[in-house]
């Protein structure tokens, strides 16, 4: 955890500094008590102090034991997160039904190595169920896209 906490502390301090800098542009105190800058400023200060404490504690920690790298795990992680991002990017263009179909298809195939039949059925059922429940029944205006779905 040493390395992680050192990085976490640095990130907290940097983020806190940005918050304090930005909050200092807002009025801090007004005629009737505190202004809009009060709470963001102090939350920034607390983040900085917390980051320093975290860094200090991590500094004194013994070095991390070596971890066995897990490239396959990292690959799965990136694939999952990346697919969600791509699906969300595509949603306004393809419509949610198609993009959600693709999301499930890519992940079920990419992660589970299921047969294409399972991939097809699971992604079709997911997209169809979401369409029926959210669009047809609850009338959530999900992005429709080119196919009108």
């Amino acid at each position: 955890m040493k390395k992680g906490d050192l990085i976490g502390g640095v990130i907290s301090v940097l983020f806190g500094l940005v918050v304090v800098f930005e909050a200092s542009k807002l009025p801090y105190w007004g005629a009737q008590g505190f202004g809009p800058g009060f709470v963001p400023l102090w939350s920034g200060v607390v983040i900085i102090v917390g980051g320093l404490l975290l860094f200090g504690a991590a500094w004194r920690m013994p070095a991390d034991p070596p971890v066995t790298p897990d490239p396959a795990g990292k690959m799965r992680l990136l694939l999952t997160a990346g697919t969600v991002v791509v699906a969300a990017l595509l949603m306004p263009y393809l419509g949610f039904a198609v993009s959600m179909f693709l999301l499930v298809a890519v992940l079920v195939r990419g992660l589970g190595k299921h047969s294409w039949l399972v991939v097809g059925i699971s992604s079709f059922l997911t997209a169809a169920a979401v369409y029926l429940v959210f669009v047809r029944w609850l009338m959530v205006p999900l992005p429709a896209g080119m196919l009108g779905l």
Partner: peptide
């Protein structure tokens, strides 16, 4: 290989 194939299609599509 297959996984990259899926990705390639997706990227091209996008």
């Amino acid at each position: 290989v297959k996984r990259y194939f899926v990705w390639a299609i997706l990227v091209l599509f996008t």
